[in-house]
Design a binder for these strands. Structure first.
Length: 416
DNA sequence: TCTGGGGTCCTAGGACCC
DNA sequence: TCTGGGGTCCTAGGACCC
């Protein structure tokens, strides 16, 4: 038995915690570079704003409908998310953190599930300020569906009872199901399957043949057979990626190199924090794909490492080598990224017969990470990143809220 | 002027093995 | 009627998730 706890319009709700004047008004949170809407309050949805809608299309709504916009502040959202999870772990024996705003709970052994859920929902809201909904079901897919159903007002929906379940699934659109996206939704509709109940009752061999094991599993889950287990211990990541769009088109090759170096260093920090080493590196650099009339160029290069590493210097030198000679003159580059691939635990890696002892390296990286943890990210680092306060490839974040919970200098009350 | 940043899993096909 | 019969590994691409 599973429950899914989901923060409503999570990013927007985080912004509202510390800015009460945002409550009751339409609000969207924008993607990096203030590009498009990635979270919308109910009031913003009521204005017809779509997920992913470009920010420049919303100007009239700002002017005439009082729409508020904020730049994404992931430091704030991550911290609020951790607070929510702390509460959930206090209340439930096993918790799987599924995303920044969603967690699955193991409900085994909890007797009055609905009463439990209502109490938990209130507690999360009171303690963190995040409004949320809880869906309960015998499978994860059904708990997700229950959560979706709960959003329309009830706050808590339990789909354990077969009658209640049948009633909800009868009108539940397939495209709202976990695991059914736009493409499959269209193909299902062409087969006359538009509701969760119809998918549940479709011939299983047809679903398996036409869509594969993934949708077949979803179908089984809709029938009440749990196929997807709770993952309360997160498996190690397989890859770590750091990429950004640039605020401007960048023609200066050194600036692109510094951007990639910055992403590489950041990726290595994440890698070491996870206690992993990388066996491969991938870089990409793209020109502005939205401006087809401009010269286009895509760089896409990767390499396997002879010896897996978590050392920023080693990865930086690889990235520099991969980028060498890759960029073209006169092309305005708009987006770039670095990915670390083939990740694994260092103790399971093949040692390098010919390498000199590398213990000193990890000590240096430990020191580097320690300094940055204590004094703030970017206090100590590597020269290849360029070290600029406002690099030409930097992000646009013109509507950024303060880091209320992670930076004391951002707290107006303390500045006295 | 203007369009995010992360991830996972599955499948098909080719190269190669005995 | 009836192609030999297994296998592994790798990659690219496509679907999905938030």
């Amino acid at each position: 038995m599973f429950a899914l706890v989901d923060g409503n319009n999570f990013y927007a709700s985080c912004e509202r915690i510390f800015q009460p004047r945002l409550r009751g008004v339409p609000l969207v949170v924008l993607s990096n570079n203030d590009g498009c809407a990635i979270a919308r309050t109910a009031e913003a949805k009521a204005l017809g704003i779509k997920m992913g809608q470009p920010a420049h299309e919303l100007k009239q709504l700002v002017k005439h409908q009082g729409l508020q916009m904020r730049s994404a502040n992931f430091a704030l959202y991550g911290d609020i998310s951790a607070r929510v999870v702390t509460i959930l772990r206090d209340e439930a024996p096993r918790v799987e953190v599924y995303s920044i705003d969603e967690s699955f709970l193991d409900m085994t052994g909890i007797r009055d599930r609905e009463a439990f859920a209502h109490r938990l929902r209130t507690k999360v809201h009171r303690w963190t300020g995040i409004p949320n909904c809880i869906g309960i079901g015998p499978t994860k897919t059904l708990a997700k569906a229950a959560n979706k159903a709960a959003k329309s007002g009830a706050g808590v929906v339990d789909l354990t009872e077969p009658d209640r379940r049948a009633q909800v699934l009868a009108t539940f659109p397939t495209t709202d199901l976990w695991g059914v996206g736009g493409k499959w939704g269209m193909r299902l509709a062409n087969m006359g399957i538009t509701t969760a109940a119809q998918l549940r009752d479709a011939p299983p061999d047809t679903i398996l043949r036409e869509f594969g094991v993934v949708l077949a599993r979803t179908q089984r889950e809709l029938q009440g057979h749990a196929c997807i287990e709770l993952e309360d211990v997160a498996p190690d990541k397989q890859q770590i990626m750091v990429s950004r769009s640039f605020a401007e088109r960048v023609k200066d090759h050194q600036a692109v190199a510094q951007a990639l170096a910055t992403f590489a260093v950041r990726a290595c920090e994440k890698l070491r924090k996870a206690g992993l080493v990388a066996g491969g590196v991938w870089i990409f650099v793209h020109s502005d794909v939205f401006r087809a009339e401009l010269p286009q160029h895509h760089v896409n290069r990767s390499i396997s490492l002879p010896v897996a590493t978590a050392d920023s210097r080693a990865v930086l030198s690889i990235v520099t080598r991969l980028l060498h000679g890759a960029l073209k003159q006169g092309v305005g580059y708009k987006k770039a990224g670095v990915a670390l691939l083939d990740l694994g635990r260092p103790e399971k890696r093949q040692a390098d017969l010919f390498a000199s002892a590398s213990a000193a390296n990890s000590k240096l990286m430990e020191a580097l990470d320690g300094i940055n943890r204590k004094f703030g990210r970017g206090v100590a680092g590597l020269g290849a990143t360029g070290w600029k306060e406002r690099p030409e490839w930097g992000m646009r974040q013109n509507m950024l809220s303060p880091n209320y919970t992670t930076r004391s200098s951002d707290l107006p009350l303390i500045n006295c």
